[in-house]
Computed example of a mutant assay.
Amino acid sequence: MSSAIDSFLAMLAAERGAAANTLAAYRRDLEGSEEVAGDLVAATKDDLAKLSRVWSDLAPATVARKISALRQFYGFCLEEVLRADDPSTALPRPQTRRPLPKILSHDEVEALFRQAESEAETGRAPALRMLALLELLYGSGLRATELVGLPVSAVPRDAPFLTVTGKGGQQRMVPVSRRAQAALARWLEVRASNSAFLFPSRKSHLTRIRLYQLVKSLAGRAGIDPARVSPHVLRHAFATHLLEGGADLRVLQTLLGHADIATTQIYTHVDSARLVALVNERHPLAGTRGRG
């Protein structure tokens, strides 16, 4: 493996605050490219052209991600004078469309909560934990990684907010509803652990994989196809339903922790008719007649 990859990843972490998952994905893509094209620092355009043939059966979004990693790597090589040219121009430019997020209806979300609340009535710790997890996924729109890594100190005391550390180590405040506060309080009463994490495990904290399994299992018990439900789908539902309710896109961007509002704009597909009606009803000139 080229030592330049390590240097590139160190730069991403130090200068751009790239998250651990992002760094791992870049490493996989770059090391996989080296297996085909050889040492990336010395690779020629012809070497990189081999990658297109190897990637021919991959999804366009996957190819686009790999190409992005290589282009950024070669930009780094130019800046560090590791080479004088950029061979990544030999790579294709696949046209990709951001996929629309999976959506749960209001009725399906209510079914999930009915099931979780019914099970929580038993007072059993796993059921109370599940309800708290569900409230924070749908009620605050947390990413799975953000949720499982929450420290106990993040739980609000006097203010209805959580302090969340998101991608790139960026912190933001997210609101916690009265329902979520109540669910958290019930969970903390039965949480038998001295761990610094809100949702501890034997070694550290609840893993993303375990959270994924818990959410799908709850969906099955609630009569919803588990294939349609995941922690990220609940985050999408949070954003979609807020936008339907009239939330401002900039506010939604802040709540979701998106660095670029273009990422948030994908949710505008959910209710375009409502947005048109909003302009027609609320625009300052909506009530005026056209001038002849």
Rank of each mutant, 00 (worst) to 15 (best):
S3G: 12
L12T: 05
A13K: 14
A14E: 15
A24E: 14
Y26P: 03
S33D: 11
D39N: 15
L58K: 06
K66L: 02
L70I: 08
C77Q: 12
C77R: 10
T89L: 13
Q95A: 13
T96C: 11
R97F: 09
R97W: 12
P99F: 08
D107K: 14
E108W: 03
V109S: 02
A111H: 03
R114Q: 12
R114A: 13
A116Q: 01
T122A: 14
G123N: 07
A132N: 04
L133T: 09
L137T: 05
S140I: 01
A144L: 13
P156I: 04
L162C: 05
T165G: 02
K167M: 05
Q171W: 08
V174K: 01
V174P: 00
R179Q: 09
E189M: 13
N194M: 10
S195H: 11
A196I: 09
L206Q: 05
L211D: 08
V215Q: 05
L218T: 03
I224E: 03
D225R: 08
P226R: 06
H241V: 06
A247P: 04
D248S: 06
L252A: 06
T254N: 14
L255G: 02
G257T: 01
I261L: 05
T263E: 00
Q265N: 05
I266Y: 02
I266V: 11
L275E: 14
V279T: 10
H283L: 14
G290A: 15
G290K: 14
R291H: 11
